[in-house]
Design a protein around this nucleic acid. Structure first.
Lengths: 138, 138
DNA sequence: CCTCATCGCTCAGCCTGCTGAGTACCAGGT
DNA sequence: ACCTGGTACTCAGCAGGCTGAGCGATGAGG
């Protein structure tokens, strides 16, 4: 039972995710980034956005995204300012430093993910888990 | 880019893991258990063990496992007591309540994992990510 | 028998998820 | 003009990952 191949698939999935995330974390730390911050920065490459939009796109709660953005702001990777036309919104934009950090991270993206036999079918299976949520969340 | 099928595989993996974990969390909360606690309880079905052993079997850090066990103890699912022959070790054992809770959780295990086309090939891919770690960690 | 490296564990602290509760703002209906 | 509902966000708090530092117990070597 202590052997991984006896584990239920859900546990296997979480563990695999942690392992991959961990590998990323080590690389990103050197760039002053985190796993979560990278996603936000990625989304911001298409232009400024509100926190709620970013949270929805990243599939996390608004509160989680807000905290991540707060960190990114503290580190100078993004700016956050109240929207002038709708004072409820906070407009988030990547700074030059943020964009540069993202580009650097992007460059090492490929060699972090461990090799698997059939990457396409793995992606496919994962999409079957993730996709349904998109429909019900919208 | 906001669409999941554009995402890098690593991000897909983390997101899928979170979704599945979340589904579990909802069910487990009703049994007074958590995702992490369930794993510990599972491992303890084979008898009492030290915290380091449990951590290694669950592929988490000792500190993480210790905190999880502390919670389980607080809730009455396990007991923790100093080993009499090696006073460094803490022997952890499942209580009756813990074993009962585990059995209840086990029963709903199957219907939580979302359906995918080819579960076996997904397991296989995940094992390719998880397994290498076992060899290098031992 | 004593010393010292190693082992098992605790404490402190950070980041990412989540929930629940509360605040400020916008917009629509009366 | 005024509620009223919904939207965007903040604050507080919990659980689970991780790292780094420190401490007592063990056990092997001199």
């Amino acid at each position: 039972m202590a052997d991984a191949d006896e584990w239920p698939t859900g546990r296997l999935l979480s563990t695999a995710a942690r392992i991959v995330e961990q590998a990323w974390t080590e690389r990103l730390a050197q760039l002053g980034l985190t796993h979560a911050g990278l996603i936000a920065l990625h989304l911001l490459q298409e232009g400024p956005a509100g926190q709620t939009d970013l949270a929805r796109a990243a599939r996390v709660q608004l509160q989680t995204m807000a905290r991540t953005l707060e960190r990114l702001e503290r580190l100078g990777h993004v700016t956050r300012q109240r929207d002038t036309v709708d004072a409820r919104r906070v407009l988030v934009a990547a700074t030059e430093a943020g964009t540069a950090a993202f580009a650097a991270a992007r460059a090492v993206e490929a060699d972090v993910f461990p090799p698997v036999e059939d990457p396409e079918s793995l992606r496919n299976a994962l999409l079957q888990i993730v996709q349904p949520r998109v429909a019900t969340t919208d």
